[in-house]
Simulated scan of single mutants.
Amino acid sequence: MKSINIKQKLNAFKDHWHPHQIAVVDDMQILLAKIKDEFVWHLHESEDELFQVLKGTLYMQFRNKTVEVKEGEIIVVPKGIEHCPATRNGEEVHLMLIEKLSTSHTGNVRDTLTKTHYPKI
């Protein structure tokens, strides 16, 4: 057991839209990600997702509204809800995600941004 320095872990990678695993808690994984611009519209049929904004502002788009999630805030996207994370004005946003190990990166969609492996850092 040891502490995990989130700032150091975030400094260990630069890629946008490529989460990195920093811990596993039972059947849940803790991921860090850097995002910029718009992701892929998708949904997760069997898993909820938690997004915590560590830096910047996340715009979680849903088909009927967009929720602004500011630094220090979280949003939970329930299973089965189509969503598309985004940033605005070229801002790089840093996130912590908590999700089941079985959660597919882009859910029910395959795209050039889809990752099938999250590096452990």
Rank of each mutant, 00 (worst) to 15 (best):
E73G: 01
L101R: 10
E47S: 07
H42S: 02
F39I: 02
L97I: 09
Q61A: 09
M96Y: 09
M96V: 00
S102W: 10
H42W: 06
I81P: 08
N64S: 15
K100V: 07
P85F: 03
S46Y: 14
I81L: 15
V77F: 06
V69C: 08
E99D: 09
L101M: 14
L43F: 00
L50T: 12
L31F: 10
T87Y: 08
V69R: 04
L95K: 03
M60W: 03
Y59R: 02
I98E: 04
L97K: 06
E38D: 14
M60T: 02
V76T: 11
I35L: 06
R88I: 05
V93M: 07
H44P: 07
M28I: 12
G72M: 11
Q29G: 07
M60N: 09
E71S: 00
I35M: 11
E99T: 08
V93Q: 06
G90F: 11
I35E: 11
E71F: 02
E92F: 10
A86I: 01
G56F: 12
Q29D: 13
Q29E: 15
T66C: 08
Q52N: 12
K65V: 04
L97Y: 05
T87D: 12
K55G: 00
I30M: 13
M28R: 13
N64M: 14
E68N: 00
V77Y: 04
D26A: 15
T87C: 04
K36C: 15
V53C: 02
H94S: 13
Q61S: 08
L58A: 01
E82W: 04
L43Y: 04
V76A: 08
H42P: 02
E45Q: 08
A33L: 10
K79L: 13
S46V: 09
Q61Y: 06
L43T: 00
L50C: 07
E73F: 04
M28T: 11
L32P: 01
E49K: 00
E71D: 09
K34L: 13
L101I: 09
D26N: 15
Y59D: 03
N89Y: 11
Q29H: 07
V77S: 06
K55Q: 13
P85I: 06
K79V: 10
F39R: 05
C84V: 04
W41C: 00
T57F: 11
V40H: 04
F51L: 09
S102V: 09
G56P: 11
V69T: 06
F62A: 04
D48R: 00
C84A: 02
K79Q: 15
F62K: 05
Q29N: 12
L50F: 04
F51D: 04
M60Q: 13
E91K: 09
I30R: 00
V40M: 07
Y59L: 01
E91Y: 03
E92L: 09
K70A: 13
E49V: 02
D48P: 01
L43R: 07
Q29M: 15
E91W: 10
P78N: 13
L97A: 06
H42M: 05
I81T: 14
Y59N: 08
